[in-house]
Design a binder for these strands. Structure first.
Length: 297
DNA sequence: GCTTAACCTGGACGC
DNA sequence: GCGTCCAGGTTAAGC
């Protein structure tokens, strides 16, 4: 029988679990009625809870089936990135970020397993976050491997082989719609690449990695930037969706208001963020993105 | 180089 | 209830 005493505890992290896991980077985390966040990273299930009543916030965690895999947790949340140093720089560059930093202090960009991030964002085209979450959950439950935890069964993300041999009709029924054949063909295509090809893009520059990704049928600039940012450590990648476009027009570039998001305008928006926030532009963008999303709810 | 339509589908909204 | 619109895009065709 699992007891809470088996949870590890720390209280000195600059990490806001809720902000990070609900900021639209990852789609498979869920929260139990006891307030535990449940998710998986490759074959490891992670259980987290963060007390927001206490200061500093107490952070409880455990991994399954192998216990105490702190390196998996720390790597996933990229705890090596010195957020407080970034805050000091950003505040000097853009005052409008100050409020978002106050609200979401500890929001981090994740280092997700590339394969999961790659396929989850296939579902993002012309879709809503709620439906993306349902679609990816169904995909994992149908084709992934079960991982038992005291909080119930979680599922690893499916392997390339499992996705490559998935049934298009079944995927369509699981809310993937017209995206279903694309998932299968992309999985089949990735199987023709060298093993760990996606992971190897972490060693490439941002521009090199993005250039490789957009060569794949179904991957455009926005999805490529999401993959670069949320699993390949490209800290200056700034995915431009409808929300980021609106923020950019409002804060930085009113002249782009009403213009179609052509490749040239997309690139102009990217340049705007990168020139303002530099090496960690994608991180700065995530703070304003989350503030915008919460404003619309 | 820009615009447009097609691609699934469920939920929100107006009537 | 029912019709319409829209949502974290991409692609290809037409201009």
């Amino acid at each position: 029988m699992f007891t809470l005493s088996l949870m590890n505890t720390t209280d000195s992290l600059c990490l806001d679990v809720r902000a990070t896991l609900t900021s639209g980077q990852a789609f498979r985390w869920r929260q139990s009625s006891e307030g535990f966040w449940l998710g998986t990273v490759e074959g490891t299930a992670i259980v987290l809870r963060q007390s927001v009543e206490e200061t500093p916030h107490r952070f409880e965690w455990q991994t399954f089936p192998v216990a105490n895999q702190w390196e998996v947790v720390a790597n996933y949340f990229r705890l090596e990135v010195p957020l407080e140093e970034l805050y000091a720089v950003w505040k000097g560059v853009e005052p409008s970020l100050a409020e978002a930093i106050t609200r979401f202090r500890g929001l981090r960009i994740l280092r997700q397993p590339p394969q999961e991030c790659f396929f989850a964002f296939q579902c993002a085209t012309c879709n809503t976050v709620v439906k993306i979450e349902r679609s990816v959950k169904k995909l994992a439950e149908r084709y992934g491997e079960p991982i038992e935890t005291p909080f119930g069964t979680l599922y690893s993300f499916p392997t390339l082989s499992a996705l490559a041999s998935a049934d298009e009709g079944v995927l369509r029924g699981d809310l993937w719609g017209y995206r279903a054949p694309r998932v299968i063909s992309l999985a089949q295509h990735l199987l023709t690449k060298p093993p760990l090809w996606l992971e190897s893009l972490r060693e490439a520059s941002y521009l090199e990695a993005k250039a490789e990704l957009v060569l794949l049928h179904g991957i455009g600039a926005k999805i490529a930037d999401c993959i670069c940012a949320f699993c390949l450590d490209k800290d200056n990648a700034t995915p431009v969706d409808t929300h980021i476009r609106q923020i950019t027009c409002r804060l930085f570039r009113p002249d782009l208001n009403g213009k179609s998001l052509t490749p040239r305008v997309y690139e102009e928006v990217v340049q705007e963020w990168q020139s303002r926030f530099g090496e960690y532009a994608g991180w700065a963008q995530q703070y304003l993105f989350l503030a915008e999303m919460q404003k619309k709810v």
